[in-house]
Design a protein around this nucleic acid. Structure first.
Lengths: 244, 244
DNA sequence: GGACTTCAATGGACTAGACCAACGTCGCCT
DNA sequence: AGGCGACGTTGGTCTAGTCCATTGAAGTCC
């Protein structure tokens, strides 16, 4: 079997959820399992995924219910467009410049290439509902994207290009988030007063083969962008490590 | 059985991990399971918890290995002290003032009480390694903590007090994170120039009985505080919802 | 010596059933 | 009418086994 059963069951339950209102109960596990032709354990595994995603809630003895749509706009901000859509805004983008530079010491270190290696640098203004939201500077080793240029980025997202044209499969990355204020240049393109509050995101992404494929530095308008995080008591799992 | 087996097994595996170096393999599942006196499924469930916590990594066909200590200093910032310790700093606290006010319209709304109800307000300076890190203003309905005062907070954490003295069990909450700059007052106590970059946290916490038990507003120094988040490809689970 | 094959060991998925624990309802008793 | 207790329904945990998929090393062939 190519794809795991519990994964396709997950999708079938998703269809079921679509036909229910928030707060309504799913059929009991003992009904659903044979209906989908799987054992109860397998069904439960699929349900557990949906619970982790925040789409279902289980209440012992009562049933499994469709969860409130979650508010959380977390920090797994890997795609500007995805992020904006999730926040209910229409994303767009304007490329302000594309050039090729030598990595240099700092950039070479974070991209894990030689300081003399070439790097494509793309500066883009990111907009939400037509108004400036963030200024993004993208750095990609030339070796990762040999023929990347401004035209390519106009049509499709950088991540689509990576996957489809260069066969790069992303594995993960590290992102830091700092508080900052805008400088003259940033203020101008973002259309805010100088020294306005802003978020500074720095992200480094790695492919499954181990190469660093991008370093992105983004400045977000503090007056338009904020995080909303839902806290759950069991999040403090680290506390237990000093139990001895 | 009071506590689930897979939970105690989790702790036993934790002991096992403590005796191994990063990257070393755990004994295979088929060895461990009978050793702990459980079925393989139950053992796997315990291992899966530890994987979610980032302490173990599984490699199909190869084995289960002790993971690199994770960097992530995420957003589940429910306790200043816990947060600081995790970042390797020594937390401390100085209470700047405690008073009782009427809720008023705004505060009444977020705390879900009448505008005329009384609220305890505590202003505290939070320090890391002896230097100012954040200015925190805590609001608690008097009805939740009838005899709360400055002395109580000197000895124990607010959350300990809630749990042990008032029998309040926390259920969760919502936290927003914004970018801001310090005003005159904040600058003075935080010992930074006026209009320095800063994070503004606003947290509302709820007890299991449904009552809102606190509203906290914290201003963190932007030059000392930052987030570091590890990104994983499957985090983009939302993308799948438009598959139809 | 290097490339290929084979195979044992390991994690991944799944089943059919058992028993426990929480919830909520329905009926009985007061 | 109100409260209380029994019980059926639901999720929660666990077992002992089966078979599949991936890995990596040992062995084989050229």
């Amino acid at each position: 079997m190519r794809t795991a059963k519990y994964h396709s069951i997950r999708d079938e339950i998703l269809d079921l959820i679509a036909e229910l209102n928030v707060g309504e109960a799913l059929p009991p596990e003992r009904t659903l399992a044979p209906q989908f032709g799987v054992s109860r354990m397998t069904l439960r595994r699929a349900v557990e995924e949906l619970i982790r995603e925040g789409r279902l809630v289980r209440r012992h003895g009562a049933g499994t219910f469709v969860a409130e749509p979650k508010i959380a706009q977390g920090l797994a901000v890997t795609s500007f467009s995805e992020d904006m859509r999730q926040r209910g805004a229409v994303p767009s983008s304007r490329t302000l410049g594309v050039d090729e530079v030598h990595a240099g010491a700092q950039l070479g270190r974070v991209l894990e290439i030689s300081p003399g290696d070439k790097v494509v640098r793309v500066v883009r203004l990111r907009l939400a509902d037509g108004a400036p939201m963030a200024l993004e500077t993208l750095h990609v080793p030339r070796s990762v994207a040999p023929d990347l240029d401004g035209d390519s980025l106009a049509e499709r997202s950088f991540y689509e290009l990576l996957a489809e044209r260069y066969g790069v499969v992303l594995d993960g990355g590290v992102q830091t988030i700092e508080a900052t204020v805008t400088d003259e240049t940033e203020s101008e393109v973002l259309e805010v007063p100088v020294h306005s509050p802003a978020f500074l995101f720095e992200r480094t992404s790695r492919a499954v083969d181990g190469r660093v494929v991008e370093f992105v530095r983004s400045v977000y308008r503090g007056d338009r962008y904020k995080f909303k995080v839902e806290l759950h008591p069991h999040d403090a799992s680290v506390t237990r490590s000093d139990r001895r």
